[in-house]
């Protein structure tokens, strides 16, 4: 029973790391970025190439995956995304889906369409018993890393100058500009960090989700569910939603395997019908 809970939390945490970047772009910047999964995939493949081809240690590959996805994100933001901030959501959808198609084809071309896994060091494989609860070492790692990320994000947003600038820029762009905040750079940096986190999530999640060129489309639905159920007005919303979905999904499959496929979607529909702004939205103004 507790093992199921543990697995669910790990799965949810993983969804959160990948999706929190999306929560930022969608919620704070009001940009429908369906290509978010593509950055996660790039990060994952980056780690894959480093570890499996060049023999870089797994832990060293994680920050590189983060930087790699963040740099590409920054580049894409400055050259392409910046033209779409004031466009309609539909045009953003068209543009980002186009990006997904392109990255999928490029990855397929260079790395092949087979599934890829990152070689894990032996000490991360297997699991141990902790007061009768079976704990997978790798899943424990995921939970630790994600918890760390959550804390750091909260601190940055709440207590740093950059955080307050970002919040100001989101609340009212014009006034923020008037106060001398370089809104463009604030957005660009935020976007890059979001992509970097997705890349890190992709690298971490490769073991459980597996990498393939259609990764962005295959998991896009899950990321969107996390963001829409969690609401887009804070970081904690998507976080709680991820955990809830992770546990709901895993428990649903354990206790009612025949109907496991429905559980996550049904939760989503019910939540959204009852609370259209998401489960953890503060008020309904924005």
């Amino acid at each position: 029973m507790l093992t199921i809970l543990f697995d669910g939390i790990a799965y949810g945490m993983l969804l959160f790391v990948i999706a929190c970047g999306l929560a930022v772009t969608l919620g704070l910047m009001n940009f429908v970025n369906l290509a978010h999964g593509a950055f996660a995939m790039l990060g994952g493949y980056c780690a894959y190439v480093l570890v499996n081809v060049y023999g870089v240690p797994f832990f060293a590959s994680l920050p590189v995956a983060f930087m790699f996805a963040a740099m590409i994100g920054l580049l894409a933001e400055r050259t392409l995304y910046v033209h779409f901030y004031n466009r309609s959501h539909l045009e953003q959808v068209l543009f980002t889906i186009g990006l997904v198609f392109m990255t999928s084809a490029v990855v397929d071309y260079f790395l092949g369409s087979q599934q890829r896994f990152i070689n894990l060091p032996a000490y991360l494989q297997g699991r141990f018993d902790f007061f009768g609860v079976g704990i997978g070492k790798y899943r424990l790692l995921i939970i630790l890393v994600c918890a760390l990320i959550l804390i750091v994000l909260q601190l940055i947003l709440g207590y740093t100058r950059f955080g307050s600038r970002l919040r100001a820029a989101v609340d009212d762009q014009r006034i923020a500009r008037g106060l001398g905040i370089n809104v463009n750079w604030v957005f660009a940096l935020t976007f890059a960090v979001g992509c970097g986190l997705a890349g890190l999530g992709g690298a971490l999640g490769a073991e459980i989700l597996s990498l393939e060129p259609h990764f962005p489309l295959k998991f896009m639905i899950y990321f969107l569910i996390v963001v829409s159920v969690g609401g887009t007005s804070s970081i904690t919303g998507p976080f709680l939603a991820s955990i809830l979905l992770g546990i709901g999904d895993v428990a649903g499959k354990y206790y009612a395997p025949r109907y496991g496929g429905f559980v996550i979607y049904t939760i989503m529909i019910v939540v959204l019908v009852l609370r259209p702004q998401g489960l953890f939205a503060r008020g309904t103004s924005k």
Partner: peptide, 13 residues
């Protein structure tokens, strides 16, 4: 798919 994607980006731009 690459070229379709490329076309979509251009159209969207």
């Amino acid at each position: 798919e690459f070229w379709i994607g490329f076309a979509l980006v251009v159209i969207a731009l």
